[in-house]
Design a protein around this nucleic acid. Structure first.
Lengths: 198, 198
DNA sequence: GTTTTAACTGAACCGTGATTCAGTAGTGGT
DNA sequence: ACCACTACTGAATCACGGTTCAGTTAAAAC
């Protein structure tokens, strides 16, 4: 069987772990399932990650970093702040491959009682806010957005909160909250936050 | 040992289950912990609820109904729609005894892969929306709120989404989002939804 | 081409925790 | 006071799944 360098195999295992959480949930996640998905032995997974808990933590961090990477690339584009903000927000919403949201709801739940996971999520969230805040500041300087009373950081927090909440609604009431509606509502929210009627 | 009627004991067990989930989380919940909390044997818990899964489902439904009951009582008060709406919203937010939110994040997570739980949450959410929508309609008829383009139901959905999202932020970033800030932000959100600048 | 390293496996171990079951004893009804 | 009912327990069962460990072999190093 094809042997691979540790770094490569670890990435594979992390990806498989996320897929498994995505499709079956964290509560029923078995090391053996992750292994089978790659045609490997459970022992190997432990060999690389020592414990299941560490595997899960690494998998969430990995998935989060991937999403952030993509978001940063969008933000580095040469378009208007508003366009970039819209696209970053669209990417944050459910649908993107890794951004399937189920894993994040599972992650929050686990994070409630796992300090390491909680720290991971806090760090990821901070990065997302930084990206949004930076786009907001850029837009303000370019005159695309008005200079409101609240800091870009604060507005970023609110936007992310709204996105999280809508994602949950969409997750549980597919009928009541479609992706189209979400986009429309978020768009209005952002407009109200950044472009008060003059 | 004090023996009780089944209905009484069941209530006790449900309450203890919620407390246990609240303090230690759903993933590590053991039937034995719930039992110990009441000084009972694990067998009794199973005797009353047949399986752990059923116990958890019943506990969430029970907690949800309790919260709704309180919300309905607030809504039945004889004050202005706006005042009642504010208080219902305040009750929905983290801090209320049962409304400690940790359990709901755990619940969402479990609901992702458990059809029965998902149905329970859907039903509870529907009730919350109905309460809010009814207050919104009442306020509109009384002329407290303006008649916007969106239905009361739709606005209720958005408000609840924002509340859920803010609750998550508050849960994970206690420093960045305090309860006071949440109240302020939600208040502004509601005002914008119901009282557009005339 | 040999040696060394490190990826990898299979079988066994082991703790955990839900559920079962046979029996015990309050309690309400008569 | 007795009966019937049902709340309740303790010990045993049983499956499950993470982790360990002793060994195997591909591949890198020289």
């Amino acid at each position: 069987m094809s042997r691979k360098r540790a770094s490569v195999r670890r990435e594979e295992i992390l990806a498989a772990t996320i897929e498994e959480i995505e499709s079956s949930g964290l509560r029923t996640l078995r090391v053996a399932d992750v292994a089978r998905r790659l045609g490997l032995s459970p022992s190997l997974v432990i060999y690389h990650f020592v414990t299941k808990e560490a595997l899960v933590a690494a998998a969430f961090a990995h998935a989060g970093e991937n999403d952030l990477y993509r978001a940063r690339r969008i933000a580095a584009t040469g378009r208007s702040a508003r366009e970039k903000l819209d696209e970053v927000i669209a990417w944050y919403m459910p649908t993107g491959s890794t951004r399937s949201w189920k894993i994040w709801i599972d992650g929050w739940s686990a994070g409630l009682f796992d300090a390491e996971l909680r720290a991971t999520f806090a760090a990821l969230d901070k990065e997302w806010k930084a990206i949004l805040a930076s786009l907001i500041d850029a837009g303000r300087e370019a005159g695309e957005f008005t200079q409101g009373a609240d800091s870009a950081q604060t507005i970023a927090t609110r936007i992310l909160a709204y996105l999280d909440g809508l994602a949950i609604q969409a997750m549980f009431h597919t009928d009541a909250v479609t992706r189209e509606l979400m986009i429309e509502w978020v768009s209005a929210f952002v407009a109200h936050e950044l472009e008060p009627p003059s």
